[in-house]
């Protein structure tokens, strides 16, 4: 199997995730898109681990999974809090960061 197969798959997943982050209005959907991005990275890591025949890439992928779990937990808690305070999780209505 060629290395580029995995890497191109990773690149495409990553770009789709980026598109989701940019295009989506619902905060939960944005979080899902971020999961896509993280998984794209993991695919690459596993491919590189296979290329070098080492366990380190796997370990990194596991780290990323753990961080992603933490990120989803905190992210969804934040979304819930925002929803409770504003009755909406549409990102374009959250303009407190407006300069």
């Amino acid at each position: 199997m060629y290395a580029v197969n995995f890497l191109i798959l990773g690149a495409l997943l990553f770009s789709l995730g980026v598109f989701g982050v940019i295009a989506r209005r619902n905060a939960v959907m944005v979080l899902m898109s971020i999961e896509l991005i993280l998984n794209a990275v993991n695919v690459n890591l596993i491919a590189f681990a296979m290329m070098n025949n080492s366990a380190e890439g796997h370990v990194f992928a596991l780290y990323v999974i753990a961080v992603a779990a933490a990120e989803v937990g905190v992210g969804l808690a934040m979304v819930l809090m925002i929803y409770r305070n504003r009755r909406s999780i549409a990102l374009d209505e959250l303009s407190a960061m407006k300069g």
């Binding site: 980026v18 982050v21 940019i22 989506r24 944005v30 990102l91 374009d92 209505e93 303009s95 960061m97």
Partner: peptide, 14 residues
């Protein structure tokens, strides 16, 4: 266009 800041920031970042 003042709305949707976060996504715009994301778009600009990427």
């Amino acid at each position: 266009i003042q709305s949707g800041k976060v996504n715009q920031y994301g778009a600009l970042l990427f």
